[in-house]
Nucleic acid binder design. Structure first.
Length: 202
DNA sequence: TAGGCCATCTGGTCCT
DNA sequence: AGGACCAGATGGCCTA
């Protein structure tokens, strides 16, 4: 029996940690999946649109005691048993083997921990996108902005705000003028996804 | 059904 | 040494 601890937070503000006892019946998938979903729900930063796919987050992460046994570098490198091992560049293989020798951690365990960190990183990026969506104006009937549209619209919105500042005009009359004459900004920024002009109130 | 969007996994690279 | 960041690959879901 071997204890594994995944510390999922390093900023000290909230202390998320996950640990499990590694025996042959232990499976990461269920516990970790539900844990990450709980984290997401608890954050309360995601809009109703936020979706977490129904697919399993750990399609191949059913760790067993066998997987966690310290393997020889060679066997660990090709533990996945995929065909890519055969044509993997020699230098890459050597580098990975060297790392495994030094760390004494099975490749699968390292990879799994890295996957969790990556997922957490993506979650934080997504929550930032949600926050940004709250700051770019859209019509209520517009569908949820994609990430790329959110960025483009934010750029356009900032450009418009800058132009209003530079013009020195009253913001409302400036926008009214834009609506009347058709807005053309200098950056050719894209307004929004549906081809409508964005309202400035939100 | 094709295309867009997204989440996840993965390996490489850079940084601390 | 380990974590953060990044980009490519892959597969699922949704919509026109």
């Amino acid at each position: 029996m071997e204890d594994i601890l995944f510390d999922l937070d390093h900023d000290g503000t909230t202390d998320f940690a996950f640990w499990g006892q590694m025996d042959q019946n232990f499976q990461f998938q269920t516990q970790l999946d539900s844990f990450l979903l709980d984290c997401s729900a608890a954050s309360g930063q995601l809009s109703p649109w936020s979706s977490f796919g129904c697919q399993s987050m750990f399609p191949d992460a059913q760790l067993t005691l066998t997987d966690l046994d310290v393997q020889s570098p060679g066997s660990a490198v090709c533990a996945e048993g995929d065909s890519s091992c055969a044509d993997e560049p020699l230098e890459v293989t050597k580098r990975r083997a060297r790392r495994l020798v030094v760390t004494h951690q099975p490749y699968k365990v390292q990879r799994h921990a890295a996957n969790i960190r990556e997922r957490k990183r993506m979650l934080s990026i997504n929550s930032a996108f949600e926050e940004l969506r709250c700051h770019v104006p859209t019509f209520p009937y517009e569908k949820r902005l994609s990430k790329i549209d959110t960025l483009r619209l934010a750029i356009a919105y900032i450009a418009l705000l800058r132009e209003i500042l530079v013009s020195g005009c009253d913001p409302k009359s400036y926008v009214d003028e834009c609506m009347k004459n058709g807005y053309k900004n200098q950056t050719n920024a894209i307004w929004n996804t549906s081809g409508e002009r964005i309202p400035l109130v939100h």
